[in-house]
């Protein structure tokens, strides 16, 4: 920690953590001095569109910014154009077929790279133009910060960060990163399916209106790609028919299955058998989903409720104090 950093921690630092969802925006304000929290407040605002902040939000953040010079605004990025891959550098991007020019990557622990598309980063900058952003954090960073605390053996574990509109998954073998993927569960993502199409020989047919069709994985069932058994599809259908899973939960389960299949089938990953699942839940996860995962994937699951805004602010605090 440098001299400036040691001086800086004696000043009041205000961190504003923001999680932007489709219909609401959560803002967590934390004021810190000498690493002690002297004020914190969470406030939620309704949104008409994720692309436009309301005047109320802008004036609220601007008012906070005008209070203290040392104010940092951090955004939790939950757009679809992001992911995590093994290794660091251009070679890693090439290996996973990611255009390194159109994404911005951050190497974590020289082990893996989290990336987001430049378009999404520019979108975030544009949305927050009137308040300005200091940090944009990937959900993988949040998940990794929790996974690090959990890792104590070399078992292969699936870590899930469940947010209101996002599903972030990381498979770790001890401290070694194996696989990572992110999905937006709030809306049906065509891109996901297109991506998946690239790995399969047939295109998927998706219709937002018809859940049954969404859950029909016959389209991806061929020799090259992982497929769902008839029983599994029947199970999905059964779940939906019983109305125990919402559309969002259904997507969650489906994306989880797709990811696991991709992990097991793709040559890009060291496909080791996942022995347990740890879910960090920020969105009051449906117990039926947990039950489904346990029953269908035969994996031991443990879940922990976390506050996403708090996590964003904590990471921001570390960034502010370590990079001063």
């Amino acid at each position: 920690m440098g001299l400036f950093s040691s001086v800086k921690k004696h000043f009041l630092i205000q961190i504003i953590g923001i999680v932007l969802e489709e219909d609401k925006c959560g803002i967590y304000v934390k004021k810190i001095r000498n690493e002690k929290v002297i004020y914190s407040n969470i406030k939620y605002f309704n949104l008409e569109s994720k692309d436009n902040l309301t005047k109320e939000i802008i004036s609220y953040i601007n008012a906070l910014q005008s209070e203290h010079e040392q104010t940092y605004v951090a955004l939790f990025l939950n757009t679809l154009g992001q992911g995590a891959i093994c290794g660091c550098g251009k070679d890693a991007f090439e290996k996973f077929g990611v255009d390194s020019k159109s994404v911005k990557g951050v190497c974590i622990d020289k082990e893996f790279t989290i990336y987001a598309s430049v378009i999404d980063i520019n979108w975030a900058d544009k949305v927050f133009k009137k308040v300005g952003l200091d940090f944009i954090f990937s959900p993988f960073l949040i998940l990794n910060s929790y996974a690090k605390k959990d890792i104590n053996t070399n078992e292969v574990k699936l870590y899930i960060l469940n947010t209101n509109n996002g599903l972030t998954m990381m498979i770790m073998s001890g401290k070694k990163f194996l696989y990572g993927s992110f999905f937006n569960v709030a809306i049906e993502e065509d891109v996901l399916l297109e991506d998946f199409e690239s790995a399969s020989s047939e295109a998927l047919s998706v219709d937002d209106e018809e859940i049954f069709e969404e859950l029909d994985f016959d389209g991806v069932d061929d020799d090259d790609t992982p497929s769902m058994s008839i029983d599994e599809v029947a199970d999905y259908e059964e779940v939906i028919l019983q109305n125990t899973l919402s559309e969002k939960d259904a997507r969650f389960v489906r994306y989880l299955d797709i990811s696991l299949k991709e992990f097991y089938s793709s040559d890009n990953y060291d496909s080791e058998f996942v022995s347990s699942v740890k879910i960090y839940d920020c969105a009051a996860m449906n117990e039926d989903v947990i039950k489904h995962i346990e029953d269908e994937l035969l994996l031991g699951i443990s879940a922990e409720n976390i506050n996403l805004l708090e996590a964003v602010v904590e990471i921001s605090k570390k960034e502010v104090l370590s990079n001063a």
Partner: peptide, 15 residues
């Protein structure tokens, strides 16, 4: 630095 963007420069004290 783990953020996709760099933080804007801040003054230690107000103007």
């Amino acid at each position: 630095m783990h953020s996709f963007i760099k933080p804007r420069k801040k003054r230690l004290i107000d103007e």
